[in-house]
Every structure is written in structure tokens, then in C-alpha cells.
Design a protein around this nucleic acid. Structure first.
Length: 324
DNA sequence: CACCAGGTGTCTT
DNA sequence: AAGACACATGGT
């Protein structure tokens, strides 16, 4: 099945910059690949694999252009609903901007981040592994690692525009070896083939391989990721923090980019720097206090405020003067 | 070679 | 509650 349709600008509220949204390093999933003017990725719609190609002229009134391909018949409305969800098109950006404008310290982020939306997970388990892998890592590197995980352990789907891989199930990753061979002792000839080894280390996840295996086991046995979406925010936070490799920052990333909990306020190095500068007279404040501050001050907009401050802090050049 | 990248786990004060 | 340190990997 191949179908083409549009999402008109009146079907969502406010600006939309798809390239910024996809490329801003949100830990729900790696950036979608680019093919001509389209961004494309394999997503799951009603348990069917569906290739989506999507293009939009940033912050314009042009409709969003979508092409979807799948083996099974899928209702267009279902695909549209998934896309609306993944790209945060159900979020009311004009209302967010009213909120940001109400605080002079946040107001400058609006122009800088115009059309930036939450890039939500297609697959919650994927967002858990992405968030774990993003810790103490660069955006580029965790994107590469997740794509390797998909190629080596996911299911393959071929389309005319390329080959795509689903994100592997918890069962598959729980049983994936950390090391396929002992790199110290194996034959030098074998070592040359390392890139093709089917183990977690060859996916370049580094020391996080143990966390990924253990997290996969827990998701299989004791933590129902679907249930977490129905919990209140603090209960969900406590639950997700039981997973190894998931601390406060990674946990909030999972809750925000994976589930869409608007209250989540992931405190990383950039948020720590810019919130200290804007709200604490550049004094050092502990991360737990910073998190509490964000949740209490920004409420249900904490997540979006974090997203906008993060992008602003990294890209505006404002922070160059006070790294540390 | 040192230091950093969207921190976390573990072990000490 | 807060500080010190290791941790894979790749880039500058």
C-alpha cells in the first residue's frame, strides 16, 4: 500500500519546523534520515511497519506533505494520528509562546526556537534505550549507536527508497551478547571483522551495554512500560528510576520525550548552566534543586521550557562566556 | 595528550 | 546530602 496525503496548517496550532524538531537531539529516537526534501523513517502503526516520508516548509502555512508505504493496508487516519503525536502537532504552540513571553528570561527563546516541537517516541522502549545511551555521550554518537542496534538486532524492511530496520524488542536485546568475542585474545584476522560482530559493543554503546541488557530484562519481566503512561508524573519517575542506567536526568528524558509528560524537567549540564545564570545569580545549585525549581516554576510547561532553554543555551552563543 | 560529550553507579565523608 | 572517581568511545 502506498498513500499520499497532507496535514493542513489549520489542523495544528502554531509554527512547525520539522528539521529543527528532528535534529535537536531529543532522546526519543535518532534523527530521521533525509532523502531529497523528505525526512523518512519506519514507524509502527497498529502493529504494522509503515515507512513514512514527510516534508514541510518551515514555519509556513503550507500543508505538511506525507507519503506512507506499508505491506498491509493501514487507514490514513491512523497514520496521520501517529504523525501528529510523534511531531508534537497536538501541542498548542501559541499558548506555549504566551507562557514563555510572560517571563522576560524565557522570552528570547521563542524567536530562537520557532517551530521547535517535542519529537516523541514511536516506541517507548526505544526511547528508554536512547536515553540511557545518551548519558555522558554526544548526540551524534548515541544516534549512531542506536542505528547500529537497529541494523544488527532489528527486523529488516526493504522499500524502493532504502532498507529500514525496526527497533529490536526487549526480548532480543535482553539476550544479546555484550561481547561476541574476546577482543584481547581473539585471532587478529577475526578482530578485523569487528564491525560486523553481532554484539552490543560493536554497536558502540560502550560501558552502557550492561545497562541496556539489564533494562531489557526488567522491561520484559517487572516493569510494564504501558502502565507507566497511566501513572501520575512522580510515580512514573520513581518507577522508571529503578532501571539501571536511568538516573534523574535520563528518567526525565524518558518521561518527556518518550511519554510526553509535560512536567518533566531533565537537568543536564546545559540546563544547569543556563538556569543558574538566569535564575540563581550564576551560583551553583544542585541538580535535584534545579529539577524541583523547574517543575514548580514552569508546571506543565516545564518540558517545553527545558527543550527551549536547552536549544537556546547550546546554540545562541550566550553560554560561551561562562562555561563552568 | 588532555578534555569534553544532554550522567550514572559506587564508594566515602 | 554532597564529593570523588571510573566508565567506552569518538571528536577537537
Amino acid at each position: 500500500m502506498k498513500t499520499r496525503f497532507k496535514i493542513e496548517s489549520h489542523e495544528f496550532r502554531g509554527a512547525f519546523d520539522i528539521e529543527l524538531t528532528i535534529g535537536s537531539g531529543q532522546t526519543s529516537q535518532p534523527a530521521w534520515s533525509k532523502n531529497g526534501k523528505y525526512f523518512q523513517e519506519l514507524i509502527s502503526v497498529d502493529n504494522n511497519a509503515c515507512l513514512v516520508k514527510i516534508a514541510h516548509k518551515p514555519n509556513s502555512d503550507d500543508p505538511i506533505d506525507i507519503i506512507a508505504e506499508s505491506k498491509e493496508q493501514i487507514a490514513e487516519e491512523q497514520i496521520k494520528a501517529r504523525i501528529m503525536e510523534i511531531f508534537g502537532l497536538n501541542d498548542d504552540l501559541p499558548k506555549l509562546y504566551d507562557f514563555l513571553r510572560s517571563d522576560p528570561k524565557l522570552e528570547p527563546t521563542i524567536d530562537f526556537c520557532k517551530g521547535l516541537r517535542l519529537f516523541k517516541a514511536d516506541n517507548i522502549f526505544e526511547s528508554v534505550v536512547c536515553s540511557i545511551t545518551s548519558a555522558h555521550n554526544s548526540i551524534r554518537q548515541w544516534n549512531k549507536a542506536i542505528n547500529l542496534l537497529k541494523e544488527k538486532f532489528g527486523d529488516e524492511y526493504k522499500f524502493s527508497s532504502g532498507t529500514f530496520y525496526s527497533f529490536p524488542s526487549p526480548q532480543v536485546l535482553a539476550n544479546a551478547p555484550e561481547h561476541e568475542f574476546d577482543e584481547e585474545e581473539c585471532d587478529p584476522e577475526l578482530l578485523k571483522t569487528r564491525a560486523s560482530w553481532k554484539d552490543l559493543r560493536s554497536c558502540r554503546v560502550g560501558y552502557r551495554s550492561k545497562y541496556i541488557i539489564k533494562a531489557s530484562e526488567m522491561v520484559q519481566n517487572e516493569i510494564d512500560l504501558q502502565k507507566v503512561s497511566r501513572m501520575d508524573y512522580e510515580t512514573a519517575f520513581d518507577t522508571i528510576l529503578k532501571i539501571p542506567g536511568v538516573g534523574p536526568k535520563v528518567g526525565d528524558c524518558i518521561l518527556l520525550y518518550g511519554y510526553g509528560f509535560g512536567k518533566a524537567f531533565p537537568v543536564d549540564i546545559w540546563i544547569s548552566r543556563i538556569v543558574a545564570k538566569l535564575y540563581f545569580d550564576e551560583k551553583n545549585v544542585s541538580n535535584p534543586k534545579m529539577r524541583k525549581f523547574g517543575i514548580e516554576r514552569f508546571g506543565n510547561y516545564a518540558g517545553y521550557t527545558q527543550l527551549y532553554l536547552f536549544h537556546y543555551a547550546r546554540k545562541s552563543g550566550l553560554m560561551k562566556t561562562l562555561k563552568k
